[in-house]
């Protein structure tokens, strides 16, 4: 199955991030994940919910280094590694996971 940005029921920017964060639902997350060729598992959802919680508290998406640290604190040392996150969200985990979580691109990703 392939999904294009135009197939999403919500507005996204040129890079595929939601224009209105309130548009996010788990169904929207599933669709964005398909675009990224990712099948969401329970482990993906744990990271997605952690990111959304982080955003609610601080108003930003964390940089990779901080995401790794947060995952380690919240989900345990076995998951709190770059390798684990690279497997879940190949390429650029902080950016891709934020996109699926319906959040802005990490402020500090150049």
């Amino acid at each position: 199955m392939s999904v294009n940005a135009s197939d999403l029921p919500v507005a996204v920017d040129a890079e595929g991030y939601l224009k209105d964060l309130d548009d996010w639902t788990e169904a929207v997350a599933e669709l964005i994940a398909v675009q990224e060729n990712i099948d969401l598992t329970e482990e993906h959802w744990q990271v997605i919910h952690l990111l959304r919680e982080f955003y609610r508290e601080f108003g930003i998406s964390p940089a990779m280094r901080i995401l790794v640290k947060q995952v380690r604190i919240k989900l345990g040392t076995d998951k709190g590694s770059s390798i684990f996150l690279m497997k879940l969200f190949p390429g650029s985990p902080a950016k891709i996971a934020s996109k699926i979580a319906g959040l802005p691109k990490p402020t500090n990703c150049l």
Partner: peptide
Amino acid sequence: SATLPVLPMY
């Protein structure tokens, strides 16, 4: 003021 307190994590 919501974002400034994130700095210690950085």
